[in-house]
Simulated assay, not measured.
Amino acid sequence: MVMITFLFKKSSNFFVKKILSYIYIAWGNIFYEKKVFDSLSNFLPLFLGFFLSKFFFKNHDIIIVYLEIIFNIAFVLISLQLLIRVMNSIMEISTSENNHKTIAVHSFSQLLKIISIIFCILIIIAIITKNNLISILTSLGTITAIVILMFRDTILGFVSGLQMSSTKMIKVGDWIGISKYNIEGNVLEINLISAKIENFDKTITSIPTYDLISTAVTNFEVMRKKNIRRIKRSIIFNIQSFYFYNSENLKKYQNIYLIKNYIKEKQKEINSFYKKNVYNNVDLNAKRLTNIGLFQKYALEYLYQHPNISNSETLMVRHLEPTHYGLPIELYCFVKTAESIKYEQIQASVFDHLLTASKEFGLEITQIVNLDKKLNSINNKKIII
């Protein structure tokens, strides 16, 4: 029997390979690689062996009964093997392109495999016990709650896969970040129960598929397609270093091409203001520029003129809420690349320049270590009321 199966399988594979070599069919090669034809070749030896066995043991009814049981179980197992290999082949064909349908195909095929295995187990139980399959299924109704509890993750994963496929939230290959697990990387696989994410440190993280729709997930794929990446970082300045400019202070900035036109316009506004209003040598009555305001304008023009900063996206230099460390000035803009190495280089060059340029405006950058020392020294002083 084993020898017949071996010879038939070898001969059938030989002829199938010859046919596929002459007639190129993409799905035929995939079926051959997934050994679908091997499973089909098992049926003929099985039937042949069964009929020969019945012929030899035709006078032994008990042996024939057991042979029928073995044949039926073998037929169910071979059919299950064929079904799984066909599903693997279909999944390979349908997921050759990297799209949102990949998730639904993976989820559906894995769910179908699980259902097929359970159904085959029930059929085998019915064959061994000689009971009707319907009666076995009816008896399982009493333990439906337990079955649902056992396959809770499977059901949730299947629903999640369908939802992600229909809404096109996430697909295999997307660059995502999940703050709950502190992970960021590319999606390698989304199957029925878990999803695999390759982090940027080349480690692999597996999370439940349901978490991709039940938790906050940031999808950076749109940013990568647009080939842009955001800079959102602030510089904290010591408020004690802020002061007003007078006409003498502004002279050294009139040759800086990024802000010289801005200074000229502001000086015209200031001169027209003084013609209409009385100054009386009171500082608060005066209309003057501040060093922090002039630096903010310089930083904004610097970003506009930077060749690697996108002007078509949101670009601003803004004040954040003051803290006990000082006043944060935030840069909000987009770099013309999504590649991490180039992005970090551009971001570093921007902040290197602005951190150094801030000294030219008389600004002091807050260093938390030094500030903590000052606070400690103040706390150690005795305050006399």
Results as ranks from 00 to 15, higher is better:
239 I>V: 15
275 K>G: 08
217 V>T: 06
215 T>V: 07
289 L>Q: 05
198 E>N: 13
265 E>C: 06
291 N>I: 01
295 F>I: 03
301 E>I: 04
201 D>G: 04
211 D>I: 02
233 R>S: 13
203 T>S: 15
257 Y>C: 09
256 I>E: 15
232 K>C: 10
295 F>E: 02
242 F>L: 01
307 P>V: 03
225 K>Q: 14
209 T>C: 03
202 K>V: 04
286 A>R: 14
313 E>Q: 14
300 L>V: 00
227 N>G: 11
230 R>C: 11
201 D>F: 05
227 N>A: 12
205 T>P: 04
286 A>P: 00
289 L>N: 04
319 H>I: 07
265 E>R: 12
302 Y>L: 03
213 I>F: 03
268 K>P: 06
250 L>R: 07
253 Y>L: 05
231 I>R: 02
198 E>F: 00
247 S>E: 15
194 S>W: 10
199 N>G: 11
255 N>M: 12
307 P>C: 05
247 S>Y: 10
266 K>G: 03
232 K>W: 04
237 F>Q: 04
316 M>I: 14
294 L>H: 01
271 N>V: 13
244 F>V: 06
261 N>V: 10
193 I>V: 15
247 S>F: 10
278 V>G: 05
268 K>L: 15
268 K>Y: 12
242 F>E: 00
241 S>A: 11
223 M>G: 13
224 R>I: 07
285 N>M: 07
291 N>R: 00
249 N>C: 08
274 Y>H: 09
265 E>T: 12
225 K>G: 01
302 Y>V: 06
221 E>P: 01
288 R>G: 00
290 T>Q: 06
230 R>E: 14
265 E>P: 03
252 K>N: 13
253 Y>W: 06
195 A>L: 08
206 S>N: 14
249 N>W: 02
305 Q>K: 14
276 K>Q: 11
293 G>W: 00
205 T>R: 09
307 P>F: 04
233 R>Q: 14
287 K>T: 01
322 P>R: 04
206 S>K: 15
284 L>F: 12
